[in-house]
């Protein structure tokens, strides 16, 4: 579905941030991307959706090459901050923004927006302004604004950042119900364990591990070596500590 072939990238005047990255995402599979701060996770996402221009290698989605700053309806990106994504005066307008740009007939817009908001269980947000939403609601609305375009691959950058447990649970349940191909970057390893089957560990611009999430995250040595911690839920309990 998403094929990354030998991608390298460096910001102007900086050291290479990504070095010869190769990976393929399987259709319908949720893949986690983990790594310490500055390891190149967000850069990789920005390259995947054409916001940054690759300096070497190529990326294709469903057989079509990604072009710099060219819209590709098959792939969508959820920014870390929903305030970068929600700019209209109502959530309805924000969710309708993508389909309207894609040339969808005006008579079909209401149905598409309703469907996208229904998928995230937030139809009540339709007429609200993003100024008046909580952080969790904004995040959910931002996801709906991507779903309305019907993409096949979704890149989620820190989707649980700054969310309380209730809102985090909502995002987990939503992701578990989605049938798109998801590529999720997060520092919240417990959240990734609940939502992804595969993990890619990236450090200093290179892929250092790729495989089943439970297997890789259980490898304490590997996790420590790359600035990560083995998730608490994968540590076998020596004695009962939940009373």
């Amino acid at each position: 579905m998403l094929n990354i072939d030998n991608i390298s990238f460096a910001y102007p005047g900086g050291n290479p941030i990504l070095k010869e990255i190769n990976l393929t995402l399987v259709k319908g599979e949720n893949t986690a991307l983990v790594g310490p701060n500055g390891s190149g996770k967000t850069t990789l996402f920005l390259l995947c959706c054409g916001i940054l221009k690759e300096q070497a290698g190529k990326i294709e989605v469903d057989g079509k090459f990604i072009q710099h700053k060219k819209f590709n309806s098959k792939i969508s990106y959820l920014f870390q901050s929903p305030d970068d994504q929600l700019f209209s005066s109502t959530i309805f307008d924000d969710v309708a923004f993508g389909p309207l740009n894609m040339g969808v007939e005006k008579k079909d817009i209401h149905g598409i927006v309703r469907e996208a908001l229904k998928r995230v269980n937030s139809e009540k947000l339709s007429d609200k302004s993003s100024f008046h939403l909580s952080g969790g609601e904004k995040r959910i609305a931002a996801i709906a604004s991507l779903l309305s375009m019907n993409p096949e691959v979704l890149l989620f950058d820190e989707p649980t950042a700054n969310l309380d447990s209730r809102n985090k649970r909502k995002v987990i349940e939503l992701i578990q119900c989605m049938d798109e191909t998801l590529f999720i970057s997060s520092h919240d390893l417990e959240f990734l364990l609940e939502t992804c089957g595969r993990v890619i560990v990236i450090d200093e611009g290179r892929i250092v591990a790729d495989g089943p999430i439970r297997e890789i995250m259980s490898d304490e040595e590997l996790m420590k070596r790359h600035g990560l911690e083995k998730p608490h839920s994968l540590i076998p309990h020596q004695e009962r500590h939940h009373y």
Binding site: L46, C49, G50, I51, K69, F71, S73, S76, Y77, F79, S81, D84, Q85, F87, F97, G98, N101, M102, S145, L146, M149
Partner: peptide, 11 residues
């Protein structure tokens, strides 16, 4: 970022 988010949605 806003500009990128808008272009990504066909703006």
């Amino acid at each position: 970022r806003v500009q990128a988010a808008m272009v990504m949605r066909g703006y």
